[in-house]
């Protein structure tokens, strides 16, 4: 199973038998982290479900204030960034360091596009007096006494998602710097794979946020 001819590559920690074991251990650790993230966002989705079950009318009324076009564009932007990060992993597996860097730059750019669109959405709402929480919320356009509840859920869910995007950009800059130092190739690309898994998770969460927040008619 183990390949003894490459007994001590530089990246191999002494407590692992071989590179494969190290890679699989890291990957399983990443999946455990993803489990944790799912349950973390799960609490927020749970709050969403409880409030939607209590006030279905509130959700249909308030969701009209969300810009479906911007949400849809952001969905496609994140899908594109997932594609480019998958391409970066492929480039690492094929020893194409140049293409790791190009694909990471595309991913970082798309992540920034996502945040810029999100910024326009937030600022447009805040301009209208739509803030999270009953005391800050001053918008009168939605005829429901609990309109602020929907937007509290909206801001917290999309806000925490946006924080994940910002963290992802930081991680990809870190991977980019390491790729620039020629640290990755077919023998060792664990960090590229793990950051990719994280980024896909952020995409998956948005895949659920988009229809549940924007597409309620």
């Amino acid at each position: 199973m183990s390949n003894h001819s490459q007994a001590h590559p530089a990246h191999l920690q002494h407590h692992f038998v071989d590179s494969d074991q190290q890679f699989d251990a890291a990957k399983m650790g990443m999946w455990v982290f993803i489990v944790n993230e799912i349950l973390f966002f799960g609490g927020l989705f749970c709050a969403y479900i409880v409030f939607r079950a209590w006030y279905p009318d509130l959700f249909t009324m308030a969701a009209t204030k969300l810009d479906t076009t911007m949400g849809a564009i952001n969905t496609v932007v994140l899908i594109g960034s997932s594609l480019s990060v998958a391409m970066a992993i492929r480039a690492a597996q094929l020893n194409k360091t140049k293409w790791i860097k190009i694909n990471l730059l595309i991913t970082i750019t798309l992540a920034c596009v996502f945040l810029v669109i999100k910024y326009f959405e937030y600022s447009h709402k805040m301009h209208d007096g739509i803030f999270p929480g009953a005391t800050l919320y001053t918008y009168e356009g939605i005829d429901h006494p609990l309109a602020h509840v929907f937007f509290s859920i909206y801001y917290v869910m999309t806000g925490i998602h946006a924080i994940h995007i910002i963290v992802g950009i930081g991680l990809m800059i870190w991977i980019y710097i390491r790729a620039k130092r020629n640290e990755f190739g077919s023998e060792y690309y664990t960090p590229v794979e793990m950051v990719g898994l994280y980024w896909h998770l952020v995409d998956v969460i948005w895949i659920f946020l988009f229809p549940l927040l924007y597409l309620i008619e």
Binding site: K27, V32, I34, I38, L39, F45
Partner: peptide
Amino acid sequence: FMNLYWDTKFNSMLLIGAFAFFILMV
């Protein structure tokens, strides 16, 4: 994209387990 299709089943089990516990919580 996350390669679960080609991965060990254990990682898929972690994901499905997380989802099952989310359903339980809800």
